[in-house]
């Protein structure tokens, strides 16, 4: 998997075990075998999927961050309107 951000260069390696908060060099998309797809027509933005996502990959506006979604399916179960469907990945999850 290609990362958008580079690993820190050697000059950046800290002396202590302290480094920039929230520094991400890899994504989690490759973990996924199914992906949530939201039916905008059914969604009423009740935000249950946003609240219950363990990875915080659904925004308050109900957009999925597919770089970090692991495809657990909790959002689909949390949706009372059936607006989220889990569909199989076709093998291009890293894209």
């Amino acid at each position: 998997m290609q990362s958008e951000r580079l690993y820190p260069n050697p000059a950046e390696i800290p002396n202590s075990t302290a480094f920039k908060a929230g520094y991400l060099v890899t994504k989690n998309a490759g973990w996924r075998s199914v992906r949530p797809v939201i039916d905008a027509g059914k969604c009423v933005k009740c935000q249950q999927c946003y609240l219950y996502c363990p990875d915080g990959t659904i925004s308050p506006e109900i957009a999925v961050d597919y770089d970090f979604c692991k495809g657990c399916g909790i959002c689909a179960k949390a949706c009372r309107l059936g607006a989220i469907t889990m569909i199989p990945e076709r093998g291009d999850a890293d894209a």
Partner: peptide, 15 residues
Amino acid sequence: TANRVNFQTPQNFGF
């Protein structure tokens, strides 16, 4: 020290 909690430039420690 820079090796401390700082709310302006947060860090993760003891990783």
